[in-house]
Structures are given as C-alpha cells and as structure tokens.
C-alpha cells in the first residue's frame, strides 16, 4: 500500500513539483482565510491579473531572473489593490466595479506590454504563456525555496500579528475604536495576499491563483468556528489540493494529451469545497436537507 503510494511520486519532476504545489496551497490557504472572512475574496483575482504588467515591465527593463520578474508582478499587484481602494473611497464607483475595472485594465495593459516584450531579442520561450496558466512542471528547486521562504515569512507575520488581524477580520470598528492601526493592518493583509499570489504565478498562473486563495479557506470555514483551526485546516486543504492536483494531472496525462496542472489543482480544490459544503460541521447541506429530530430536553 505504502509502496503504491510512494510509486506515485516516483517521477523525478514530481519530487519538486508536488511539494512546491503543496507549499503554495498551504501558504495561500492560510492567507486566504483572512481574505474570505473579510469578504475580500476577489482581491486575489485582481492581484493575480494585475501582476502581468509588472512582470512585463520588469522584463522590458531587462530583468530575466524569475525572482525579479515576480517582484515586478508583486509591485504591480500591490499598486492595483491600492488603486482599487483609492477609486472605491474617492468616488461613487462601487467597490466591485472598481475591482473588476482595475483587473481588466491592468490585464489589458499587461497583454499589450507582454506582446512588446516578446518581440525583444532574447525573449526566448513564450514567457506570456508561462505566467498566464503557469507551468507547474517547470518548478525547479530554487522556485521551491522561494515559495517555501515567502510562504514561511507570510505565516510568521500572520502569527506575529495574530490577535490584531483576528480582531480586524471579525470586528473592524471595534479594532479601530481600541486604537489599532486599522489602515496599516489592512495594508499588511493586502501585502500578504500579494505575496501569496505572486509566488503562485509560475506554478498555477494568473487566472486560477484566485481559486487557491478562496477555495481552501471557504472549505475550512465549513468545519469550524475557530480561526486557528480554520487556518490550519485551510493550509491542509491547500496542500492537499496542490499535491493532489499535480499528481492527478501527471497521471491523467498521456503522451499527446498534456493535462495542465494549474486547472487540475483548482478542480481538486473545488471538489474539497463541494465535499465540505455537503458534509462540513453541523451546517452541512446533507445534514440540513432532512428535518432534524426534535431533541428532548432533560
């Protein structure tokens, strides 16, 4: 049994890819809990799309190393979220329209810049494709260190500011009234979201990274009412989706039919969500579908 399980991993590429995807899922799951609780699930969507022009600008400025490209993406994603806030607060445009509009405008700008970048000499293999859908198969050991390092840093920050972030997530008004720097904490969470999204760009791509933030957290929410447990569960679900999706994609792929890893990871995460919605905790849809027997007191 164990041998069969181990043989699943017995592909050299998977030894780096599956752990990388698992680490990514865990980090995104933890950060995603706060996004979901604060009803900002779609922030990740904006960041991941808006990272594209940043990657392109970094490339046009001469950056070639993945770390610098991702850093460019992070800056652009961060700028986009700040702009969403500025437009949402500074005008009567509703917040959701600000999100959607910023996402599309940044992505469009990114496409235009990318097409320019690809015409530069030395652009080499299609960088555009790599960041749109991600190619988990391209994960190498250095990427693993980046994902692990940034992920661990994000977790460390979450642990340090745990009490404050918890209060911000559940009662922002009270947090402000007791003198917490609400705007600063908000910016901190934004930065963590950006960090979690950009380390996933190479593996999962811009379009689907948002699911890795939302799905594990939403699934974990079904099983518990305690934030600590929720974060741990979300990390577990995220890691499971990452590793499981990678393995599934690998074993479904035939020589001519390459099943893309990113979407498969998202599908696994979606199944986890569906199962959690159906069976999770006392509120599970399966349990509430039938009228509960009336409890006798005493």
């Amino acid at each position: 049994m164990i041998d069969t399980l181990l043989s699943l991993f017995d592909v050299p590429a998977l030894r780096t890819v599956a752990p990388g995807a698992a680490l990514l899922g865990a980090a995104a799951g933890a950060v995603g809990c706060f996004a979901v609780l604060r009803r900002q699930s779609l922030q990740g969507d904006v960041v991941s799309h808006a990272a594209l022009p940043g990657v392109a600008v970094a490339f046009l400025l001469g950056a070639r190393s993945p770390v610098l490209l991702v850093l460019g993406g992070a800056v652009a994603g961060w700028v986009a979220l700040v702009l969403v806030g500025v437009v949402g607060r500074g005008s009567r445009v509703p917040a959701d329209a600000a999100l959607g509009g910023t996402l599309a405008v940044f992505f469009g700008l990114g496409l235009a810049l990318m097409q320019r970048a690809q015409k530069l000499p030395g652009a080499g293999a299609n960088p555009l494709d790599r960041y749109l859908f991600g190619q988990a198969a391209n994960l190498r050991e250095p990427d693993l260190w980046v994902i692990g390092g940034v992920g661990a840093l994000a977790l460390f920050v979450l642990a340090l500011a745990w009490k404050e972030l918890k209060l911000l997530a559940f009662d922002p008004d009270y947090a402000a009234s007791v003198g917490l720097p609400v705007r600063g904490l908000d910016l901190l969470l934004t930065t963590l979201t950006v960090a979690a999204v950009v380390i996933g760009l190479k593996a999962v791509g811009v379009v689907l990274m948002t699911a890795l933030l939302v799905a594990p957290a939403a699934a974990a929410r079904q099983w518990t009412n305690r934030l600590g447990v929720m974060v741990l569960l979300a990390m577990g679900f995220g890691a499971f989706s990452g590793a499981g999706g990678t393995l599934l994609a690998h074993h479904l792929s035939a020589p001519l039919k390459a099943v893309p890893t990113g979407p498969t990871i998202v599908l696994v995460a979606s199944v986890v969500v569906a199962a959690s919605l159906a069976f999770g905790g006392a509120r599970g849809l399966v349990w509430t579908a039938w009228p509960r027997p009336v409890k006798q007191d005493g």
Binding site: R39, A211, A215, P260, P263
Partner: peptide, 21 residues
C-alpha cells in the same frame, strides 16, 4: 454557507478550470 464574494470566487475558477482541462 459562503458570502457573496466567495461564491463568485469559488464558482468561476472551477468552471473555467474544467473548461481548460
């Protein structure tokens, strides 16, 4: 069980990923 924003963030990546696969 989930808020409006999370509902959108759960449904469309799932259907999109299915389409891409």
């Amino acid at each position: 069980l989930v808020k409006a924003d999370a509902a959108i963030g759960l449904v469309f990546p799932a259907l999109f990923a299915l389409g891409v696969v």
